[in-house]
Design a protein around this nucleic acid. Sequence first.
DNA 1: CATGGGATTGACT
DNA 2: GTCAATCCCATGC
Length: 199
Amino acid sequence: MSAGADRHLRALELPVAAAAAALVGCTITHGECSGVIVETEAYHEQEPACHAFAGLTPRTRPLFEAPGIAYVYRSYGIHALLNVVVEAAGVGAAVLIRALEPRAGIHLMIERRGRERLTELCSGPGKLSQALGIGLELNATPLLGGPIELGPPPPGEEAAPALVVGGRIGITRAVELPWRFCAAANRNVSRPWPPGLLG
DNA sequence: CATGGGATTGACT
DNA sequence: GTCAATCCCATGC
């Protein structure tokens, strides 16, 4: 087994921010569609941007379960957002998958999204759920051996990618936490940087 | 039971 | 840059 082939498994054992960083480069597969994770954010019950901050409720229950299951919830009444639950059972923490680089099932992604440009298929948390056909019915399902599969980096891509770290997007509280992790210079992130900004 | 607010996106000025 | 779509759920009466 080559180095890095179990990175997704090790990520599930880490504190949420480290897990979010480690998951960049790993893969998400649903049916015939798959992609490489290029953007994540960490959420933890001890900070107010996290749903689990409100405590254990019917909505947040999956966040408090054992690591390795999906937390899928509806955002703005329209979009399904996919999270990877991490940290020990009883602790509410999860990694939001914000963007993928499409790798397989691209024709089906195009059909579901109604767009053909590769960078418009999975470049956002709502977009990737639509592209992969992930809905609320997959909330709390396992990510190892379940309908959605969290996998290691593709063969030959086991090296940890360079990351850009910053504040999380689209929230109003705890924006100062540096808990957003993007694959540097990847065109599939939800908010690409202007040309040249990365140096 | 009524209300308000989103971990977003796409269309439009 | 602005803004509406749309619905689950936490909260408060």
